[in-house]
Design a binder for these strands. Structure first.
Lengths: 112, 112
DNA sequence: ACATAATATTACTAATTAGTAATATTGTCA
DNA sequence: TGACAATATTACTAATTAGTAATATTATGT
């Protein structure tokens, strides 16, 4: 086992995946799809984004392979293609919570 | 336990953290710091980015709390503040590898 | 075929930001 | 103090992109 550092190309691929998760609207879509597939309209209702934007972001997530798409009559249902995303989000949420708790403990310790 | 969906503010915080990891240069810095703290000059040498850019990206990572900074004489050493980052990167790398392997298997299965 | 509902696309604006050259700052050593 | 090395900052450009209104597409039911 050598240095095993990622090369430029690989770094770019990793960055691209992180970038997909670096937008609140897309994260909102993903967390809403966590339990079950939803139609575009349902996602629009669940978030507070406009239809055109949701459609756009769904397209981005689908093109990247993070979402699956299935037509059912007049509706189009999207679903999570790889639940690994939620492991990622759990890690990040865990870190943020831990940081916040440390912050809180620090503040409390200053309260004499 | 209710719906437990993140609100707008929380989504923004999560997105911000992902955004820090959504740039190849910053990822390159982080992976170089994985083994040990490095000075700015060492990081510049290890990557193929200019000094001013490395310094800028180090500042961003430090301001966000992902890196620690320590002066030693003329040099300034940066180090990873929270190794959780590597868990994140490992997940992403794992996914990309798995996807690539599936792709490869598919191609092979088509080769008669 | 027509009206309607659901979704996608287009064209655009505003905001963000990576990278950079030049310059400023900070520390070391003589 | 002055020269030098390491790092940070500034000011700028070019590129990317979220959000949006308007419009186009696609499917359904009559």
């Amino acid at each position: 086992m050598a240095k095993s550092l990622l090369d430029q190309h690989q770094l770019k691929a990793v960055a691209k995946l992180f970038d997909l998760l670096a937008e609140p609207t897309r994260l909102d879509i993903l967390q809403n799809l966590k339990k079950a597939p939803l139609s575009v309209g349902q996602i629009v209702d669940a978030t507070n984004a406009k239809q055109s934007n949701i459609s756009k972001q769904l397209g981005i997530l689908h093109d990247a392979g993070l979402l699956k798409r299935e037509r059912q009559g007049n509706l189009i249902f999207y679903s999570i293609a790889d639940p690994m995303i939620f492991d990622l989000c759990a890690l990040v949420c865990g870190k943020l919570r831990k940081d916040a708790e440390s912050q809180l403990a620090l503040i409390r310790s200053l309260g004499k």
